[in-house]
Every structure is written in C-alpha cells, then in structure tokens.
C-alpha cells in the first residue's frame, strides 16, 4: 500500500525560523528514509494555495514560534480539514502564552513560580512603570523577565539588581507585547517529554540540562558543547515518578494530544516547578524530545512516524 503523502511545514517568518528549518529538514530526511512521499514547504503567504495544490494526506508541523506553535496554523489546517501532527488549536494557543498557561497551572494546583504579567499597553496607556517597585516586592530578586509568547528562550532576561528590571522589561517587550516577570527558582533544569501511546499520555525519560551559565539561554540552547545533558536525569525513582506524573497532569490539564514537552525547575526546597508546556517541541540535532525518545528506545525515524500515525488516525 502506498504510504500517505506528508507535507512538512517549516521556516516561516517567525524569529525561530532557523531552528524550524533545521527541525524540518531533519524530519523530512527521516520520512524520506521511511519511504514517505514528502513535500517540504517553507511557509509564506501562499501556504493555503500550496496545500490545495499538493493535497497532502497529513501535515507535519515543524514550525516554531509565532503562527506555527500558537494555534494559527493549526486553525488553518482545521479549516482545510487536513490532519496535522501535535496538539490542537486550544492547547497551542494556551501553551504558547506563558501568562495564560501559568494562570491555568495555578487554578489546577500545578506548582509554578510566582509571577506577574504586564502588557505593553499597561506601560503605554496606564503608567505601569510606576508599579515596578511593587513588582519587585511581590516577586523578589533575582527574577526572570520573559516575553509571554515567544519560544526558544529568545528575549529572556535574568535580573539580579532592581535597576536592571526596566531594561530587561524593555528588551523582552521587543519580542512580544506581553511579558512575564517570574521569580527565579534555583534548581535542576529538567524537561519531560510526553508521547501518547494508544491515546494515553506517557512520560519519556526525564532530560536533565546542565549549563555553566546562570540560566538556560538562547545561545546555550543552540550552540553545541555549551550544555551537558543527563538522560535519564540524575534523580531518585520516587522523584522521577512524581515529576513524570506531574508532567502528564500538565499535558492533560492543557488538553494536549500526541506530544508535548514540559519544562520544569527542580527546586531543592519547593520540589518541581513547571515553567511551561511546549506544543511544538524542537526536532533538531540537539533537541530534547528526540533525546528523551532515544533514551526510551524510540529512534528519530520511529518518533516521527508515530507522530504522523497519530495525526492520520484523526482523519475522517
């Protein structure tokens, strides 16, 4: 039987274009090796026409960042009635917005670092800069400032001294109109990938990330050699179980499906604290999801094929 035709969406004009191209090429290679007919699409304003012309059976979304992970492309594919990999519209919208997901974490009693979110409008229209002293009082130092809707650690700032806050906010606001001010949690950086099996979310082995820097920034994330990983993470069995269960809970709470990656900090004092859920985890050489899958005995090609398979089962 002929294998279904896969359109791999990649690139686009998000700030994470390069990472997305890397993910997309890697995914395409894997699918080719498995014998799938594929078409690679560097997403631009002709996407809909191209999809209508190519008529793929399924779309692999290798896009990162704005429009690719935030529900935009997912909504479009729903309209066109083409099955696609990964979580749906709702989870994508919520997962991409760290402020909204953290609000939901709090409601669902999922541990997450104390935070406030501020929009550009709050500063421009309502004089929010007058409230910076209160922000510091509420969150405490050191703290982290990050754009609410931006992946790949772009625009994330570490603030040690109170006078650094304004610049950090301005920097983060260049990436998104809404930013998050979050308490800095000292601890182990861990990432838990969820891969569904027969519709049941299963946590893959936990990846522990060790950097020489204060926190995991964009540069360390994409330059090889800066960062070390331990898979599975150096944790006790009990810790591993608690954390994996927590990750599954996050995945379910945001109504995710197929796959997701939950990033956490394991604080010695407070236990695991959830940073965010990624609905479009990276698939590059150095990405965490393929690394975790490999530790579970699932090689890259099989991982991609499973994601495609889950999407295809949703077809009418």
């Amino acid at each position: 039987m002929a294998k279904p035709k896969v359109a791999v969406l990649m690139g686009g004009r998000s700030l994470e274009r390069e990472v997305s191209l890397k993910s997309g090429h890697r995914v395409s290679e894997a699918l080719k090796t498995k014998g799938y007919p594929i078409v690679q699409i560097d997403v631009n304003e002709n996407l809909v026409d191209l999809l209508k012309q190519e008529k793929p059976d399924v779309v692999y979304i290798a896009l990162h960042g704005k429009y690719g992970e935030d529900g935009t492309v997912q909504e479009l594919l729903e309209i066109l009635d083409i099955p696609y990999t990964g979580p749906g519209v709702y989870s994508s919208i919520i997962g991409f917005d760290k402020a909204i997901s953290k609000e939901i974490f709090q409601i669902a009693s999922i541990p997450t670092a104390p935070f406030v979110s501020l929009s550009e409008g709050a500063f421009k229209e309502m004089g929010a800069s007058g409230a910076l002293a209160e922000v510091i009082k509420k969150i405490g130092l050191p703290l982290i400032v990050k754009p609410a809707r931006q992946g790949s650690a772009l625009g994330i700032k570490y603030v040690k001294e109170r006078q650094e806050l304004a610049e950090a906010l301005l920097g983060a606001l260049s990436y998104d109109k809404k930013v998050l001010v979050e308490k800095y949690i000292l601890g182990k950086e861990i990432a838990v990938s969820i891969l569904e099996e027969d519709g049941e979310p299963k946590a893959l082995p936990i990846v522990e990330i060790v950097t020489e820097k204060d926190f995991f920034d964009f540069e360390a994330m994409y330059s090889m050699g800066e960062t070390k990983y331990f898979v599975p993470a150096r944790l006790s069995e009990a810790e591993t179980k608690t954390i994996q269960e927590l990750a599954v809970k996050v995945h379910k709470t945001l109504l995710c499906r197929d796959v997701s990656r939950i990033d956490m900090i394991l604080s010695e004092k407070d236990g695991p604290m959830v940073l965010e859920l990624n609905t479009g985890p990276g698939m590059t050489e150095t990405s965490l999801l393929p690394m975790a899958a490999a530790a579970a005995g699932i090689d890259y090609g099989d991982l991609v094929e499973r994601l495609i398979g889950m999407a295809l089962r949703r077809r009418g």
Partner: peptide, 26 residues
Amino acid sequence: MAPEIRLDKWKDLYSTRAQALKSSVI
C-alpha cells in the same frame, strides 16, 4: 549512573582560539 550526553564530543579538542568563536542571537 545516568549516561551523560554531550552534544559536541570534540569540545575538549578545540583550540582556545576556536572556543572563543560563538554564534549569536543577532
């Protein structure tokens, strides 16, 4: 002991010159 994964296993071989060369966000 959990296996340690280093993305660049040649890291220790690089000259100090090369280690100073980095990619950037820009």
